[in-house]
């Protein structure tokens, strides 16, 4: 991989570990640490030397203009980029101390620990019940009692239980858009991950459904570390503890959310959150 110096380099100061350590909130521990990660799709470098710590049981928001690499970085955290041919990743990502890119790592294990919810809700064409317990069945669990319990717990966790408890056998595709997205969240938490990645989980939803998901994120924070990509700055401000701003594949600023939105340190960040571009 060739690290091409882009012409924008001059204007950007890259804030790294030093800053994140001093602003660490919550438990103060870091769940994920990203060290000097660069990524290219073929010859096209999408991430440039990113380093950051993601706090345990916190909501971390990734913001930035379209194409700046938010999804790419997010997908590095559970190795979803493995599915794409011709991707090169350098640097180190550790989840609770375990290097997830080392050859000894079991990628299935990583994805179990780091769940993911996608922008477009993608339930399987199966019943609601089967959707939720999919990850458990895949892991070889077939005890009906365990599955039933996991199903109820996950659906409650995703604030969907009361709406669907009487129709668990119906197709997951018969739900509303917001319900489907919560079903996907239930599916993700059914395997009891430590971290949940969300890539614009509300972008296809109406304001009421969005609000529900946001409340859900707030309550999930008690048990899970959450990383959320969003284009909605208000949403980032509402749900996240810390916010990272990306620009052209670089991490420009990473700070406590209130600080970021009231006193951005970087000119680019300020321009972005005040809506001057992006």
């Amino acid at each position: 991989m060739t690290a091409v110096a882009s012409p924008q380099d001059t204007g950007i100061r890259i804030r790294t570990e030093v800053k994140t350590q001093e602003t660490s909130a919550g438990t103060g521990q870091s769940a994920i640490s990203i060290e000097n990660v660069s990524l290219s799709y073929g010859d096209n470098q999408a991430l440039h030397d990113i380093s950051m710590e993601i706090g345990e049981r916190q909501v971390t928001a990734f913001i930035g203009p379209s194409g700046c690499g938010k999804s790419t970085l997010l997908r590095c955290l559970n190795r979803m980029n493995d599915l794409i041919d011709d991707v090169t990743v350098t640097g180190r990502i550790t989840v609770r101390g375990q290097d997830i890119y080392s050859p000894a790592t079991d990628v299935i294990e990583v994805r179990r620990r780091v769940g993911m919810v996608f922008q477009k809700s993608n339930p399987f064409p199966k019943s609601i019940y089967e959707n939720v317990v999919y990850g458990l069945r895949i892991a070889g669990i077939s005890d009906k009692k365990v599955l039933d319990e996991a199903c109820e717990r996950s659906l409650r966790g995703a604030a969907l239980w009361d709406e669907v408890k009487d129709r668990l056998d119906e197709s997951g595709l018969g739900l509303s858009g917001g319900q489907m997205q919560r079903l996907c969240i239930a599916r993700a938490i059914a395997v009891e991950p430590e971290i949940i990645l969300m890539d614009e989980p509300c972008s296809a939803l109406d304001p009421i459904a969005t609000l529900k998901i946001e409340e859900l994120i707030y309550s999930l924070k008690e048990r899970y570390t959450i990383v959320i990509v969003t284009h909605n700055l208000q949403q980032a401000a509402r749900v996240s503890d810390r916010t990272a701003f990306f620009w052209l594949g670089r991490l420009v600023e990473y700070d406590q959310t209130p600080d970021m939105f009231t006193r951005p340190k970087d000119k680019l960040t300020e321009d972005y959150i005040t809506g001057r571009f992006g």
Binding site: R111, G115, M116, F118, N122, Y134, G135, I138, R187, V191
Partner: peptide
Amino acid sequence: PRSMREASIATGATKFQTILHVVLP
């Protein structure tokens, strides 16, 4: 759809399990 395969992979399914339980049906 690719999204369906990704959903399966992201829940910890192997490629073979994804094909068997999601893609083939």
